[in-house]
């Protein structure tokens, strides 16, 4: 049974004449590591937003764990799917890097030394610990990207959807990110990477979906 499925989904943005996504059918099993690739404006991010229920398709259905995505609240979707936007600035809303990681954990009921331990571990792992008291919006683009990824990783969702995660990250931190994703991937977390970074996706993903002009051009396994 697929964990996420899109069945004959189409989506057209208001004010546009051409649909961003045309009659797409895709299924994602638990624990898969998938690269969603394609040219700029081909519909990759739209597919991600449809999977997350942030956009409602004009045609077709999207299901998560065998239930229509519309039946879930955003909070419930967030418990299952972790999403990092292409523009991390929109995801950073607290006054310190530490609070950014702790925000979701606090809402999950994690408190005290347990909370501190999780935050410390993840920030140290990504070499962000020295920046813990800085305001996220004052960081470089790459650092912001990593903080946003860490904030989502800390919540341990069943599936991770990362939109251009390596866009502004340096080689050193890119390797750390790759190792971390490989690690959580081995533990059973599904990963969908939307990226133009061929090297990164080749090292991580075992399935590649190429999107062209709002349609799935190819969908196959990678060795």
């Amino acid at each position: 049974m697929p964990y996420i499925s899109l069945n004959r989904v189409s989506y057209i943005y208001s004010g546009r004449s051409m649909p961003a996504v045309k009659d797409i059918t895709l299924t994602f099993e638990k624990g898969e590591k998938i690269a969603l690739t394609g040219t700029n404006g081909s519909g990759k991010s739209t597919i991600a937003r449809l999977m997350l229920g942030l956009l409602k398709p004009q045609a077709g259905t999207v299901t998560l764990a065998n239930r229509p995505i519309g039946d879930y609240s955003l909070v419930e979707i967030g418990e299952r799917l972790g999403y990092v936007l292409q523009n991390p600035t929109q995801m950073l809303f607290t006054t310190t890097v530490y609070d950014e990681i702790a925000f979701g954990l606090r809402w999950k009921g994690v408190r005290g030394s347990e909370l501190d331990k999780v935050c410390k571990n993840i920030l140290k792992h990504f070499a962000l610990w020295p920046l813990r008291n800085k305001m996220p919006l004052t960081l470089s683009e790459g650092q912001k990207q990593l903080v946003a990824i860490c904030a989502v990783l800390a919540l341990k969702p069943a599936y991770l959807i990362l939109d251009e995660p390596t866009k502004s990250i340096d080689t050193f931190r890119k390797d750390i990110l790759l190792n971390a994703l490989q690690d959580i991937g081995h533990k059973g977390t599904g990963i969908i990477i939307i990226s133009h970074d061929q090297e990164f996706t080749h090292r991580l993903c075992n399935r590649e979906i190429k999107v062209f002009d709002g349609k799935v051009a190819t969908d196959g396994s990678r060795c």
Binding site: S73, L74, V75, I77, G78, G82, M91, F93
Partner: peptide, 18 residues
């Protein structure tokens, strides 16, 4: 649009504001 994306992110990180 950005504010709406931020509120989506807040909720997706578990903040059930309702």
């Amino acid at each position: 649009g950005e504010l709406s994306a931020t509120f989506d992110a807040i909720q997706m990180r578990g903040a059930d504001l309702r």
